[in-house]
Structure formats: structure tokens, C-alpha cells
Computed example of a mutant assay.
Amino acid sequence: MSEDTLTTRAATVWPTFQAYDPRAVIDILVALGFVETACYADEAGVIQHAQLDWPEGGGVMLGSHKPAGPFTQQPGTSAAYVVTTDVDAVLTRARAAGAVVPDAPVEQDYGSREVGLRDPEGNQWTFGTYPGEPLRS
């Protein structure tokens, strides 16, 4: 391939994070449009792993906060950008779910239309139309 060839790529990077109450985070993300593909809890009901897919591509993985774990993360400190073709639909679903969101999406200088919000634990979510630039290979 020449240097100027542009290629598209499948979503293979999955943001992961931990939550004090993963069920609350899962529920709001499902309300926003994610699909709960898998959710594994132990006998005590502690969510060890959940996978939520975004219908337009990609997804996130999360589980209960494990402060002594080898890859522990402080809940509420993550941020993710989710590409969507319908920001207004996400905004409508967010409001219906009781999320605090701005009055209108923001039009960015780089061409994206975006809306941002926080989940119940404080993680930042931005839903926008900017799909990233094509990969030059």
C-alpha cells in the first residue's frame, strides 16, 4: 500500500473501568443505547465483568471496584468518546433516564456535534459525530 492509501478500521480498543455500583453504571449506559452483552457476577452478586456493546461499533467493559487488584482503577475517573450518527437520540434517552445534560449539543470547530454527561459515579461520556480521521497506511 502507498503512504497515501486511507483505510478504515474496526473498533478493537475497549475502554475498561471499575465502579462502586456497576449495576447503576450499566443501567444508565443501557438507557443511553449500549447493549448489555455479558454480565458475570459471583455468588455474592458482585459484578466481576460486564461487556456493553455500542450498536454503531466498539463498547466498554467494567466491573466492581477491586482496590487490591493488580489493575485497580479509581471509580469515577474515566472518560470515553462514543461515536454516534444520532446525537439527538442519545440526548433524548439521557434526559428520559434522568441524566443531567446540557440544553443542546455543541457544534465543535472540527465538525463534530457532541453532547457530554457523567454517569452516576462521575465518569465522563461524550457522544459525538466525529468518527476520527482515516488511517493512512
Score class of each variant (00 low, 15 high):
69 G>Q: 08
119 D>V: 01
133 E>L: 12
89 A>Y: 01
63 G>H: 03
131 P>S: 11
59 G>Q: 04
11 A>L: 05
135 L>G: 03
55 P>H: 07
53 D>Q: 08
31 A>T: 05
117 L>H: 04
6 L>Q: 14
135 L>V: 14
40 Y>N: 08
75 P>T: 12
96 A>C: 02
69 G>C: 09
41 A>N: 03
26 I>C: 06
63 G>A: 08
80 A>N: 10
25 V>F: 11
110 Y>F: 11
31 A>Q: 11
99 A>D: 05
83 V>H: 15
130 Y>V: 04
54 W>E: 05
120 P>D: 07
63 G>V: 04
120 P>G: 06
86 D>I: 09
93 R>T: 05
53 D>A: 09
98 G>K: 06
6 L>E: 10
51 Q>I: 09
40 Y>F: 15
54 W>M: 01
14 W>P: 00
68 A>Y: 10
54 W>K: 02
77 T>N: 00
103 D>S: 08
73 Q>M: 15
78 S>V: 07
69 G>H: 09
12 T>A: 06
13 V>P: 01
100 V>Q: 14
33 G>L: 03
14 W>M: 10
103 D>I: 01
88 D>M: 07
129 T>Y: 03
121 E>M: 04
36 E>R: 15
81 Y>I: 03
75 P>L: 13
94 A>G: 05
134 P>T: 06
23 R>T: 14
59 G>Y: 07
83 V>K: 03
35 V>N: 11
16 T>K: 06
77 T>M: 10
83 V>S: 11
48 Q>D: 13
56 E>K: 02
95 R>H: 04
16 T>H: 13
69 G>E: 08
23 R>K: 14
109 D>N: 07
92 T>C: 10
107 E>K: 04
100 V>G: 01
104 A>C: 03
124 Q>Y: 12
82 V>C: 06
26 I>A: 03
95 R>P: 01
118 R>M: 02
64 S>F: 00
81 Y>V: 06
55 P>D: 08
12 T>C: 06
83 V>Y: 15
